[in-house]
């Protein structure tokens, strides 16, 4: 089931609305000391956008301009392309047979894009940040892939509408809680957010964010929130039954669940310190990866037993 072509801009607007919501949530959750009634904070994304539209762009000495541009605008484009397959109330703009793989392919594209964002400026801090992303991705990507497989196995399909439909009785988060949590962690990973914002570390003057200014920076920061929103949308479809729920229409249920997941993702930023890749690599491979494999085994056996 899918919508006609005019729904593509609608999907883009919906994603950007969730993106803006994520930015507002982040401002509201900020625990600043004073000058901080929530009304003062809600407007922050607007002020930041205005500030960056006013600010001049920047170029450095012998930058790799093409790759840099690719890296600053790429994350937003990836989030928009992910949004094409994310169902809202059981239906998406398009519903390919390989919807889950589609999402996977684009989150891997982010390896290149974030690295480009760091590399392009010919700046030491940016370069270190770009390579930090690759190291971090080596830690989260495999658990993410196996976490993605769990709902697909349970539904016997890679088509997202069928994955959602297969949850009509029990949401997959019940069978696969570990996969759900791993998925959320990985979303913060490819969004360079909170505990996994190691590539944008404060210790290297914000790493991949050190050099872009003006509209370049605006695009990169927007892309970051958009990736969180797309990740929340995907989590809802894969693990939280999509638009399933009583009384309210399906699209509204989808929206509410996405909002809830988004709030959790945004809130993670203030709960934990940065998990540096060299410090968590061992735990990712020796704890997280086996855990997701066991999770997948459980789901496989349950699916086989239930069929």
């Amino acid at each position: 089931m899918s919508y006609p072509v005019w729904t593509v801009p609608v999907a883009a607007v919906v994603l950007m609305s969730f993106t803006a919501t994520a930015a507002v949530l982040d401002a509201v959750l900020d625990s600043a000391r004073r000058g901080g009634g929530w009304r003062e904070r809600v407007g922050r994304p607007v002020w930041e956008a205005a500030r960056l539209l006013r600010q001049r762009r920047r170029t450095t000495v012998a930058p790799d301009a093409l790759l840099w541009r690719l890296g600053t605008s790429g994350p937003l484009v990836v989030a928009l392309l992910m949004a094409v397959v994310i169902p809202l109330g059981g239906r998406a703009v398009t519903d390919p047979v390989v919807g889950v793989v589609w999402f996977n392919a684009f989150d891997v594209a982010l390896w290149l894009l974030w690295w480009c964002a760091g590399w392009g400026a010919n700046s030491v801090y940016g370069l270190v940040g770009g390579y930090r992303f690759v190291a971090q991705a080596l830690a989260y990507e495999l658990p993410l892939m196996f976490a993605l497989t769990a709902p697909a196995v349970a539904a016997g399909s890679l088509r997202l509408s069928e994955v959602v439909a297969a949850q009509d009785r029990v949401w997959f988060v019940v069978w696969a809680p570990v996969a759900f949590l791993v998925f959320l962690l990985a979303v913060t990973g490819f969004s360079v957010w909170g505990p996994l914002s190691y590539p944008a570390g404060w210790d290297v003057a914000a790493g991949v964010l050190a050099e872009p200014s003006g509209v370049d920076r605006l695009l990169l920061l927007t892309g970051r929130y958009a990736l969180l929103a797309a990740g929340a949308g995907m989590a809802t479809a894969l693990f939280l039954g999509g638009g399933a729920g009583p009384l309210l229409p399906g699209w509204l249920w989808s929206g509410l669940k996405i909002l809830a997941v988004l709030a959790v993702l945004v809130a993670m930023r203030r709960r934990l310190p940065i998990l540096r890749a060299d410090r968590v690599m061992k735990r990712a491979w020796l704890v997280l990866l086996p855990l997701t494999l066991v999770q997948l085994l459980v789901v496989s056996v349950l699916t086989y037993g239930g069929s």
Binding site: G35, A206, L209
Partner: peptide, 12 residues
């Protein structure tokens, strides 16, 4: 804090 400013890490 009083003027609602935020400290940043890089000149860009």
């Amino acid at each position: 804090v009083d003027v609602g400013a935020v400290v940043t890490a890089s000149p860009a």
